[in-house]
């Protein structure tokens, strides 16, 4: 028997402890957001892995395309003046 309406997929993000970002850790199927949140809790925090959960409908995520990688990310590679190590500061100037 096939499901005509499979429950939608949700992406799960978990904050592992106060002070840290939410991090993607997997997904669940659920019919609504409350169920998704609870399923995420039941599936991904069984070993005290979280203090906060976000669930986001998978189809609400807009992702960059792998084939755009060169044009999106490589232009930043030669802007090395954005990094502190680009600059020579004599030791005598003190901690900077």
């Amino acid at each position: 028997m096939t499901d005509t309406k499979e429950w939608p997929l949700w992406e799960v993000f978990i904050r592992s402890k106060a002070g840290l970002d939410h991090k993607h850790c997997g997904s669940v199927h659920a019919s609504d957001s409350e169920m998704a949140l609870e399923a995420a809790r039941d599936v991904y925090t069984r070993r005290s892995e979280g203090v906060s959960i976000w669930v986001v409908p998978s189809n609400a995520i807009t992702a960059s395309k792998p084939e755009d990688k060169e044009s999106l990310f490589e232009p930043a590679d030669d802007k090395i003046y954005r990094h502190p190590t680009f600059y020579d500061i004599p030791k005598g100037a003190g901690k900077m």
Partner: peptide, 29 residues
């Protein structure tokens, strides 16, 4: 707890497989 882990592990892998464009419903079928 062990059996529950197995269900969880099945779920993690179904989710990983879904990233390749096959739904869990199809796999179960």
């Amino acid at each position: 707890a062990k059996i529950q882990d197995e269900g969880g592990h099945g779920l993690y892998i179904y989710a990983a497989a879904e990233t390749l464009g096959t739904s869990r419903a199809e796999m179960i079928e």
